[in-house]
Structure formats: C-alpha cells, structure tokens
Amino acid sequence: MTCDEAQILLHALLDNELDAGHAREVEAHIATCPACTAEFTAQREMKRVLADTKLRYSAPASLRTRIEASIPQARPQPSRRSVLRGFAMGSAVSALAATGVVAVVLRQDDQQRILSEVVSAHLRSLQAGHLIDVVSTDQHTVKPWFNGKLDVAPPVIDLTAQGFTLVGGRLDYVDARAIGAVVYKRRQHIINLFVSQTASTEHRPPKTQTMQGFNCRRWGERGLNFWAVSDIGGDELAEFVDKFETAMKANVEG
C-alpha cells in the first residue's frame, strides 16, 4: 500500500468503514510509516474534538410549524385535497429538478446501484489497461492468487473447452468493497465475472439486465453473488452462466 492510498484509507479506518481485511492492511501500513502515523493520530484527535462540539443546528420552531402546516393532516375534505394539489403544482419545481429527483430515487434501489457500479468496474477494466492482475489461463494459478486478498476467494473455473477462455483475475472495488473479478474471453470480447460474498445463502435465479449497452447477468448461489458483464449478446452470456454453473456443480459433486 502506498502512502497516497493510506492517506485516503486511514479516514475510512477512522470512520469504521473498512472490512476486517482492509482495516488490517491500513493498520499494517500505518504501523511502519511515520508520516501516516502522524496524520492518523492528528485526524483521530480532530475527530474526537469535533464529536465533542455542538456542530448541529436545531430547526427553529417556526419552521417546524410551517412545514407541519403544509402537510395535510385534517379529516379528509375535498377542499384540503385541492390545497395539496395546489402545493404540488405551485412549488417551483422545474422539469429538470424533477428529473433529478427521479434519478435520486432510482439510485436508492440498492440492486440497481450496485449493478451500475459493477458495469462501471467492467468499463474501467476495459479502459484503464487494468484488466488483469494475475495473467493465467490456469485456474490453479488464478484461484490461489485471490487467497489472502479477499475474505472469500471466488471460484475460478477454466471454461476453455466450453468456448470461454479463462485469461486471469483481478481485484476490483464495488460498493466500497474489494471484490474478485475473474476474466474470461469469448472471441475478442471480455467477460468480467464479479463475485462477492453475501449473507444470504438462498438461491437467486439468473437474471439479465442491460445497462450502458452492456449485458449483465446476475445470480446468487452458495452464499455468493455473481455478476457476469460483457458486450456479448444476452443469449451468449446466458450460455456462459449455464456452463459456469454446470461446471461448478460438477466440481462440488466431484
């Protein structure tokens, strides 16, 4: 870990936002780096003083009264309903602002937000020349590489015989967490298979969604969440997922 990374991650450590593995990594860096130790200590002290200081404001009582009055609360009466309508129409919401609100509401949907992060991670992997951390077509090389980098190493399966070539693995970040990405190739097309641990062990059947022109097929199995992302067609991606799951089951049983 470089100091630049540590100088950002030490805040996540202070805020208790890191999983155990990353917390250990940051702590290990701080322990051996005087500059980062100094910054960490100073920031911890500042955070302590801030927590002890009244920095919040209280809304004035008159504001609370005004807002409460604007929310309909009497018995249903036709006139009140038109008052509510009046508010809805009368408030100066531009079409643009309304669109903003819709976008925000969509972001609230956790699955959707994570899907968009997964697709962004796929895009990053294609653009930044950071497709693969460990280059190997051998599943016995790729799988151990993940050990120690993630709490649970993703399953790595060679599907070359089934028409999907294993090309390597990569550590990526989705939803503020490290996540394993296993990279496959179909002709000249890249498939990123993102795998993360989940608390739920229930089986979630595969489902394909399209985002920013990419197909993403996601499913849940054996306490893991999977997202396969690629620009190959939806049926080919479904075929990939079928082959992967068949091979997984054969592995587990065999």
Binding site: A59, L63, R66, I67, S70, I71, F87, A88, S91, A92, V93, A97, A98, V101, V102, V105, Q108, D109
Partner: peptide
C-alpha cells in the same frame, strides 16, 4: 428546508427507500 419538504412530499409516491 421548507422547499425541500414540499418537494419531498410531492415525490413521496416514488420514494422506494
């Protein structure tokens, strides 16, 4: 803040948590 609550009430139907 008052405007914020008016808009929030108006769009509360589409709020999904």
């Amino acid at each position: 803040v008052q405007e914020c609550y008016l808009r929030a009430l108006k769009h509360f139907d589409s709020y999904r948590g």
